[in-house]
């Protein structure tokens, strides 16, 4: 079933493209410490708002142009003709424990200080935007996956049990979901964030807090749909057959009901991951999400809420927005492709 689905996705051009692109994103996020030339907090106050450095082929190897600050008042840099710093591969760097285990003391590429390699420019304290984007993608890309995992588990359990057993549990669970769905999402997020903030202070915990808050809002919709699907599956004779054989309710849910919801779950998961990415971005943008020294795409965007970014056209500082945009589009298109594959009928319904 799963390998079959994969095969079908790869046979469609849009599906193959989105899947491969997303896999590349996740691989890049996973290997961020190796791929990023600099650490997230690596500043250079002499090179603030530095534009992307030109990469050229010079004397038989890749090299970056060197720049001179010509007008500090508006951060105007100019390339110095004939001045280059070669790009080295597999360069020595401060030791870092990859996944907290494997010590790594190299990075894939970099230039020798004091020259700097800014593939996507630098921010107001001279930190490398490209490196920060890579590290930030770890938060932005995993938040959707973890969120979906939590939402699916809660949604399946509550919706599955409500649909299967019905009765009072069903009514109470459904009124609960209605309550959550009736409150506008952003207010609920902000209220929960404010209420829970005092228990979470360091940045890892805040990441968890954000996932929990977003999942708390997200499970209600999943649970309702799972309940509906369970209700309709519940009266299928193969469920009765299992009951007639004496199969227990938990096994029936697990073996007969959930596998038949699989295709639906995979589609909704794909289509709701963007919600988590945008949710994190919104929270971080408002300053109540991911905090320094961690980084995320939303946090990076919030740091450029500054008129001069627009006045002076520091476009590279808006690349986190582009990254969010592209990721969201990729998930949506992939979700659409999967939906067409697993259930052409859903096309008109969702």
């Amino acid at each position: 079933m799963t390998s079959d689905l994969l095969h079908q996705i790869l046979r469609r051009r849009a599906g193959a493209f989105c899947l491969v692109a997303l896999i590349l994103f996740y691989v890049a996020a996973f290997f961020a410490p190796l791929l990023a030339p600099y650490a997230t907090s690596d500043q250079d106050l002499t090179k603030t708002y530095h534009p992307p450095t030109g990469v050229v082929w010079h004397e038989g190897q890749l090299a970056v142009r060197l720049y001179k600050l010509v007008d500090p008042t508006c951060a105007k840099y100019e390339a110095e003709p004939g001045q280059f710093a070669p790009i080295h591969f597999w360069v020595k760097a401060p030791t870092y424990h990859f996944l907290g285990l494997i010590p790594v003391s190299h990075r894939l590429f970099g230039v020798e200080a004091p020259a700097r390699l800014y593939l996507l420019g630098s921010d107001e304290t001279g930190r490398d935007v490209f490196s920060r984007l890579l590290y930030g993608s770890r938060v932005s890309l995993t938040i959707g996956l973890i969120g979906i995992l939590i939402t699916t588990v809660i949604g399946l359990t509550v919706g599955g049990l409500a649909g299967y057993f019905g009765g009072v549990f069903d009514s109470v669970a459904m009124r609960g979901t209605e309550l959550i769905m009736a409150i506008p999402g952003l207010y609920l997020i902000i209220a929960l964030r404010a209420a829970l903030a005092k228990y979470f202070d360091d940045s890892d915990q805040i990441f968890i807090l954000i996932v929990v808050i977003l999942s708390f809002i997200g499970w209600a919709g999943t649970a309702r749909v799972i309940r509906g699907l369970t209700l309709s599956l519940r009266n299928r004779p193969f469920i009765y057959a299992a009951e007639a054989l004496g199969q227990g309710p938990v096994t029936i849910l697990w073996k007969h009901l959930f596998p038949n919801l699989f295709s639906y779950l995979i589609v909704t998961s794909m289509l709701s991951i963007p919600g988590y990415i945008l949710g994190e971005a919104a929270l971080s943008f408002l300053g109540i999400g991911i905090q320094e020294p961690s980084t995320s795409w939303g946090l990076m965007l919030s740091q450029v809420q500054d008129l001069k970014v627009f006045m002076l056209n520091f476009w590279w500082l808006l690349t986190p927005g582009l990254a969010i945009f592209i990721t969201v589009i990729l998930f949506n298109v992939l979700g659409d492709v999967v939906r067409d594959i697993v259930d052409p009928k859903l096309k008109t319904q969702v």
Binding site: M1, P237, F238, Y240, K255, P259
Partner: peptide
């Protein structure tokens, strides 16, 4: 035991 009317829905398709 029981045998059902609808042969299309009485076997789990998965």
């Amino acid at each position: 035991q029981i045998i059902f009317q609808d042969p299309y829905n009485s076997l789990n398709p998965r």
